[in-house]
Amino acid sequence: MDILITVLGDEAGSEASSLAEWLRADEDVPKSAISLARTPTAKGEMGPVTDIVQLLLDPTTTSATLTAVAAWLTARRQTTTIHIKSGDREVEVESASIKDPAQAAKSLMEEIEG
């Protein structure tokens, strides 16, 4: 499963880098599945380059990885919103809405798997 995560409002890319580092530190998340990609603006447009965390997961690691993403969100000091895309499915999650990372991961799985 290919999952793209964008941290909204993160023009400097520091939050996306923080998320990637958090995931790499989690022993349940395969390190080889995590990459940080840059999405340039469209040709002729001005604006920031967006950093995206790209995850290439197999079914056995998806739940643990999404739990780690939810845990990262709950650890944010200020309200943080992420945009998750997998195939043609997209969902946004705000840190303030997460009470239990495992339950949030389950809900995310349902959203992106259909």
Score class of each variant (00 low, 15 high):
residue 84 I to Q: 04
residue 38 R to P: 01
residue 18 S to P: 01
residue 9 G to N: 12
residue 11 E to S: 15
residue 20 A to Y: 00
residue 40 P to L: 14
residue 57 L to S: 06
residue 83 H to D: 14
residue 111 E to P: 00
residue 78 Q to R: 13
residue 101 P to L: 03
residue 93 V to T: 02
residue 2 D to P: 07
residue 46 M to F: 12
residue 5 I to W: 03
residue 79 T to H: 09
residue 11 E to G: 13
residue 63 S to A: 13
residue 26 D to C: 09
residue 77 R to Y: 06
residue 72 W to M: 03
residue 12 A to W: 01
residue 32 S to C: 04
residue 26 D to E: 13
residue 4 L to S: 12
residue 6 T to P: 00
residue 105 A to F: 01
residue 1 M to Q: 05
residue 17 S to I: 11
residue 22 W to Q: 09
residue 71 A to R: 14
residue 78 Q to M: 11
residue 17 S to M: 12
residue 33 A to I: 02
residue 17 S to E: 15
residue 76 R to T: 03
residue 43 K to H: 11
residue 100 D to T: 10
residue 22 W to V: 08
residue 111 E to S: 12
residue 63 S to W: 02
residue 56 L to V: 08
residue 93 V to L: 15
residue 3 I to M: 09
residue 80 T to A: 07
residue 105 A to V: 03
residue 73 L to Y: 05
residue 89 R to A: 15
residue 6 T to D: 10
residue 16 A to M: 05
residue 76 R to P: 10
residue 84 I to G: 05
residue 43 K to D: 09
residue 52 I to L: 14
residue 102 A to M: 08
residue 110 E to T: 06
residue 52 I to Y: 00
residue 35 S to L: 09
residue 83 H to E: 13
residue 80 T to Y: 05
residue 30 P to G: 06
residue 57 L to C: 10
residue 89 R to G: 01
residue 55 L to R: 06
residue 106 K to M: 09
residue 81 T to F: 03
residue 66 L to N: 04
residue 13 G to L: 08
residue 68 A to F: 02
residue 58 D to F: 07
residue 76 R to L: 07
residue 93 V to G: 02
residue 105 A to E: 01
residue 4 L to G: 06
residue 5 I to L: 10
residue 13 G to P: 07
residue 72 W to N: 01
residue 97 S to W: 12
residue 114 G to H: 15
residue 70 A to E: 06
residue 22 W to N: 11
residue 47 G to S: 08
residue 18 S to I: 02
residue 99 K to A: 13
residue 98 I to P: 00
residue 35 S to N: 14
residue 4 L to A: 13
residue 32 S to M: 04
residue 101 P to Q: 10
residue 56 L to F: 07
residue 7 V to L: 13
residue 80 T to D: 09
residue 4 L to K: 12
residue 45 E to I: 07
residue 30 P to W: 01
residue 104 A to I: 02
residue 30 P to I: 04
residue 102 A to F: 10
residue 19 L to Q: 08
residue 75 A to T: 11
